[in-house]
Nucleic acid binder design. Structure first.
Lengths: 334, 334
DNA sequence: GCCGGTCGTCGAAGCGCTTCGACACTCTCA
DNA sequence: TGAGAGTGTCGAAGCGCTTCGACGACCGGC
């Protein structure tokens, strides 16, 4: 145990070797005899040595920290975002990196700050808008970055996300297979579309294209998140389109309101109206009835983002665009 | 602008002063003439200088980073946790600190690691359990820490939280004023009680004591988060206690299910059953009908936690326990 | 007109680590 | 047997910053 903080010099003395030898044992950058390595490792654990992060960063020009830029914007579903974030942290630790959390209130300036001060080696950005103020900054930064989501002009960037267009299409396909002929997409709150958030738009486009391809009738609507608004939206939708028998919901916060509204309007799920959601599995499973859903593979996306950013950090080439294939799980609602 | 990274030496040369002078301008630890200060600041912005975080940490023994330890446990309501987290980040920036995000998967060892490596100066821990494995570690750490929430044995620690006992009591009071005589508390999922998470237990105790003090009848129940389970719980509750006319819900995820269940059971809110929630304002406002609620002042708690940890970092004495007073907002549900 | 006391600035010594070049050995193969 | 090619280890030079002690310059008081 340690009285005060243990340095590499103390470890070296304890093991009877040079400081540089200890460093090489730790980094593996030069071959060290098995015998010496053992003595050093023994000394390290005997003294309870932990390398000083600042000193290491200074000497090696690597902080072993990545920034996670996570604006928490209105209309975004926080639990979903946090699954991404959590996956990023876990994956980063696999690469021996820690995660610095940045929110939006500092704006792009915060990104510049942590990059310029060498606080972080690389950045992962979430909740990307089509026209994102952070993007131009990324292009001029020396530090590698990866976006979770796609801006309007992704050339020269590295982006990863679920293939939301395919997800929207997959839902249509599933409903078409079940024989539905008129369906609707209830999407994100309109503020999210207005902001031009890519995932919402792409789902809508994929939905619309698949509708056309399968010769179905249908419509896409934004969907707010209070019960009353959801209720009105659903009620009006059913009034306007008496033939409608399928619903795709891409809005985690509205899911339970939609089901409650259908219940109140005396429509049985799936008998009168079939419902498919695009949401994490637990939201789908927690609903009443459990929902057929395209799951949002947050863990996989987060892991992939970190893998990509680490590749870039090591100078390896990476694809500009990584789209994960949506998987549909059938449950009681269709 | 910078070809490559700018150092303090370059700033010093550009301004025609010593390196130490630049440092003192930045830190304000010695008096510098207005004239020199101006020249230095001009050079800094002309060159686009940002101090290197690693070097600074090494020399000053302060990383200007605090750790936010945020286990994302089952049954916790993530949006609420994130409001705390977000408030902590914002507040930390006010003190010129950044936030390193730690999750649970590394366990207490992760805390030891970031502290021992001097990656962080201090820690803020969230989602504290009554018998929390992290607590003994905190006691032996040199780095100051603050808990959001209370463990069973908080002596010697610094804890801050909403006064959940008072919150539970406040709900009872409100319903008592409205003339209700038999009420129930629907709390967190049972896993949260089993784990011994303080806030859930304290609300329950405050509720029970107030019940007694006001001479009301009532009961407290855990509450799961799927619609079907909530529905059954509510249905059985109403069957068992025909006189019941008030409900306190302390479970963000269940709130909308509770309202849907009441609707389905033909109970009107607030006419047949009055409902008070303990949750953030936006959840209460988004419900149908909008709910009378005790708000969870996440921003304030986060800010307070950071203030306390900064005080400790500066060696100032701080109270062991900080409890924030609950505020009740009356809306359409009572 | 000299002394003690600010005030403003400088130079240099680290902080704890990584990494480069050097060097002493030990093998191998001509 | 000796040149050449590894191995395994060491010492020292930084990395970019903070901070300490020193030291002129200037002030007011006697």
């Amino acid at each position: 145990m340690s009285g005060r903080t243990v340095t590499i010099a103390q470890v070296a003395k304890h093991a009877g070797v040079a400081v540089s030898t200890v460093s090489y044992v730790l980094s593996g950058k030069r071959t060290i005899s098995a015998d010496t390595r053992r003595r050093v490792l023994d000394s390290i654990s005997a003294l309870g040595y932990h390398p000083n992060a600042g000193a290491r960063a200074l000497a090696s020009k690597r902080s072993n920290v990545i920034a996670l830029v996570l604006p928490l914007r209105a209309g975004m579903h926080v639990p979903v975002l946090m699954r991404f974030a959590s996956a990023v942290v876990t994956a980063a630790r696999r690469f021996d990196h820690d995660v610095l959390l940045l929110t939006a209130d500092e704006g792009p300036e915060g990104i510049r700050r942590v990059a310029a001060s060498a606080l972080v080696d690389a950045l992962v950005l979430m909740d990307v808008e089509l026209d994102d103020r952070r993007v131009p900054l990324l292009r001029e930064l020396a530090e590698p970055s990866v976006l979770i989501g796609f801006p309007a002009e992704p050339a020269g960037l590295t982006c990863v996300d679920l293939d939301f267009a395919a997800a929207g299409a997959r839902c249509v396909e599933h409903l078409a297979e079940r024989g539905h002929e008129e369906i609707a997409l209830l999407g994100a709150p309109s503020v999210v579309y207005d902001r031009g958030t890519g995932f919402a738009t792409r789902t809508r486009e994929g939905f619309a294209r698949a509708l056309h391809a399968h010769g179905l009738k249908g419509v896409t609507l934004p969907c707010e998140e209070t019960f009353d608004e959801v209720y009105e939206t659903v009620r009006d939708l059913l009034l306007d389109r008496p033939g409608l028998s399928g619903l795709v919901v891409h809005n985690e916060a509205a899911v339970s309101h939609v089901l409650a509204a259908l219940r109140q309007l005396d429509r049985r799920v799936p008998h009168d109206v079939a419902v498919v959601a695009i949401c994490p599995d637990d939201v789908a499973e927690r609903a009443g009835p459990p929902l057929t859903s395209v799951l949002i593979p947050a863990e996989e996306v987060g892991r992939e983002a970190v893998r990509l950013v680490m590749d870039k950090l090591e100078g390896r080439a990476v694809p500009e665009s990584t789209l994960l294939t949506p998987l549909l799980a059938v449950r009681a609602s269709t």
